[in-house]
Amino acid sequence: MLKKVLSYLIPINIHTVKSDLSKSIEITWANGELVLDSENTNYSYGSLQRILRLGLKTIGFHKIIKMDHILVLGVAGGSVVKTLVDEIKFGGRITGVEIDPEIIKLANRYFKLDEIQQLEIVIDDAFEFVLKTRDKYDLIIIDIFQDTTMPNFLYESYFINRICFLLKSKGFVLFNTMLLNQQHNLRNKKYISDFCTTNYSIKSIPRIEIHNELIVIEKTI
């Protein structure tokens, strides 16, 4: 595993693919582990896995392991799924929604995502999926990026209200956001202040890995 050893000195790209939806998707050895990156940011494993693991830890591994059904909006390479299954030992259902089939092909090839029996992958737009699904979820993980850009619909009231509707009693939302400028900071502050707080508690975990802020929402009834 010479490439793995050398990756502690410099990242080593082993596969690059372009798709209709992504400019570039790269599989790279970095610091001794395989990661999936877009052109300008980490999509799965590496720093992203550390970020989402912290969010899950904030919710509480002991709570997550008792859940029945988790929804992941934005699967990419599936690092958060691996954390749920391999580290937390979550045994319930996981539904993963990913818009780009090319990313799922790479996730299956390099990260064996298709070997996780409790995982159902749906190739769909996250916005369309949440409108159609009839299931309710104990935890909804939102990790949707187009390279370094977050789609506007994530902050629209209709989407937010629909996410709240899909949460079971005492359920959680873990929302990974990226803050690159002051406008993004203000956007997140407004999101938190405007949130339907009557039956929900909401808090942020700011400035993780420099540019990420996690928002954790709990349905209190």
Rank of each mutant, 00 (worst) to 15 (best):
K105R: 12
V85S: 02
E102N: 10
Q117C: 03
I116T: 03
G77A: 13
T95C: 07
D86V: 01
Y110D: 01
V97M: 09
D86P: 05
D114A: 10
L113K: 01
N108L: 00
A76D: 10
S79H: 10
T95G: 07
E102L: 02
G92N: 10
G91V: 01
P101K: 13
D114P: 02
F111R: 03
G96P: 11
G77L: 11
P101S: 12
G77F: 10
F111D: 00
I88Y: 09
D114H: 14
E98Y: 08
K112H: 14
K112Y: 13
I88R: 11
V81D: 05
I88H: 09
V81R: 05
G78E: 09
I94C: 07
K89D: 08
A76I: 06
F90V: 03
N108G: 04
D100N: 12
I104Y: 04
N108F: 05
I103D: 03
I103H: 04
S79R: 05
I99V: 13
I116K: 09
L113Y: 07
I103N: 06
R93I: 12
T95N: 07
R109P: 02
E98W: 09
I103G: 10
E87P: 06
V80C: 09
I94R: 07
G91I: 01
K112C: 02
K89W: 01
E98S: 10
N108Q: 13
I104P: 04
L113H: 05
K105L: 08
E98I: 08
V80H: 14
E87D: 15
I116A: 00
L84W: 06
F90T: 05
I94K: 04
A76T: 06
K112V: 01
G96R: 11
G96A: 11
I99F: 11
D114K: 13
V80P: 01
K89T: 00
S79T: 02
F90Y: 15
D86G: 03
Y110P: 00
V85P: 04
A107K: 02
L106I: 00
G77M: 11
I104K: 04
T83V: 15
K82W: 04
K105C: 04
